[in-house]
Amino acid sequence: MTASDRETGNPFAGLPWQDEPMLARLHERLEAQAQQEGILDVAYRTIDTPVGALLLAATDQGLMRVAYEVQDHEAVLQQLADKVSPRILQAPTRLEKAARQFEEYFSGRRTRFELELDWRLSKGFRREVLVHLPDIAYGHTESYAEVASASGSPKAVRAVGTACATNPLPVVVPCHRVVRSDGTEGGYVGGQGVKHTLLTLERAA
């Protein structure tokens, strides 16, 4: 609103400019209607965990993306808009089951995620590597070299590292269970401290 509006007597000047409760209600209604009409291509929510806020995003095929705060949630959503579809809404309903399983995992009550996964953000050899990772049992680790052998390319140790570093579904696809041959933990998408926290959690449970 400009000064000239006020001079001409804008009749709306005294009205509330934002109506948060109604907008929240309208947003919920939009989520439900978009889902029903089949135009909610990507639904997301964030959850609080001991390793910070996690962004969870799902298509109607399943969970597609998990991202740590250090990966910049806004940037990740923009990538999803570019690569998958801009029809993205914050719509927690589609992610209720996933959110519950994360909560159980972080409280040590869940050792395996049972979720539909949408693998579309991972291709080729990287995807082959990642698909194998849930076979590494909870509380156990494998070296990058062992994972390379299991993926049928024993020499592709570096490529396994790249696959882990670009894992679109960390925690659920447990790239944190892949460590260096010398026993040290190695790098991690969420940062080394987070990898250590996850491995410690799994050893304790």
Binding site: D19, L23, L30, Q78, A81, D82, P86, I88, L89, Q90
Partner: peptide, 13 residues
């Protein structure tokens, strides 16, 4: 193109 959520947030009111 921005996520549609941003459009709802910016222009919904």
């Amino acid at each position: 193109m921005q996520p549609f959520e941003q459009i709802v947030h910016d222009y919904g009111p």
